[in-house]
Amino acid sequence: MADLEERATVVASDSRQAGAGVVVRPRRADDLADCVRVLGDVHAADGYPAEWPDHPADWLTPDGLLAAWIAEWDGRLTGHVGLARSAPGDVAPALWSHHTGGPPELTTVIARFYVAPTARGHLIGARLLSCAVAHARALGLHPVLDVLATDTAALALYRRLGWTHLGGDDRRWASGRTVSVHCFAAPRG
């Protein structure tokens, strides 16, 4: 585990060189209050998450979470990404398996990914994804994700970064709401 944390820190250090004042590092427990605050800003601006969780700090730490990172810009938390084992009902691992022939257990899910509205346009999202992808690969796993079809900015980001579109699906949430999602896989590395 220490070796994986060291690799994540190396990736984060490399990210620091890519832009002035931006640092990507592993998330600590004492970051959660700021993560929730920024998530609230994202929710107000973009509607992500589409259904506000009753306990946002718990939502940011789902079962199966393997690791999480935050981005800081000039000392302020500006973004978050998690890497988790797939949960029941996750479509992206099954679609990846169908496309590649590999078992879905060889995937990991990019989760709880967001960047503060005021910090966009500075490659922060790309840096966060880079850390998560590098960590997944160090674990021998292939990163996948899903995104709401209505989140056009996120869809554009994944396409711009070379993620492979695996397909789409409609999901019925516990609230009764039906949403359309698109699933992606990270570029082969």
Rank of each mutant, 00 (worst) to 15 (best):
A2G: 10
L4I: 15
E5W: 11
T9E: 12
V10R: 15
S15D: 08
Q17H: 13
V24P: 00
L32R: 12
A33Y: 04
D34G: 02
R37S: 08
V38Q: 00
V38M: 01
L39M: 15
D41N: 05
H43E: 06
H43Q: 10
D46I: 07
D46L: 09
Y48Q: 06
Y48R: 06
W52M: 05
P53H: 08
P53C: 13
A57C: 09
P62I: 02
P62D: 02
D63Q: 07
A67I: 06
A68V: 02
I70R: 03
E72R: 05
L77T: 02
L77R: 00
T78P: 02
T78I: 08
G79T: 07
V81Y: 03
S86K: 11
A87V: 09
G89N: 04
A92C: 10
A92F: 04
A94G: 12
W96K: 06
W96E: 04
S97Q: 10
H98R: 13
G101P: 01
P103G: 14
P104Y: 01
P104C: 01
E105A: 14
E105D: 14
L106G: 07
L106E: 08
T107R: 03
T107F: 03
T108Y: 01
I110T: 12
F113P: 01
A119M: 08
R120S: 07
A126N: 02
L128S: 02
V133G: 01
H135F: 14
L141G: 01
H142A: 10
P143V: 04
P143A: 12
V147G: 02
L148E: 03
A149C: 13
D151S: 14
A153Y: 03
L155K: 11
A156C: 02
A156T: 10
L161Q: 11
W163Y: 15
W163T: 09
T164W: 07
L166K: 08
G167H: 03
G167S: 07
G168T: 02
R171G: 00
R172G: 07
W173T: 06
S175T: 15
S175V: 13
T178Q: 04
T178R: 09
V181N: 03
A185P: 05
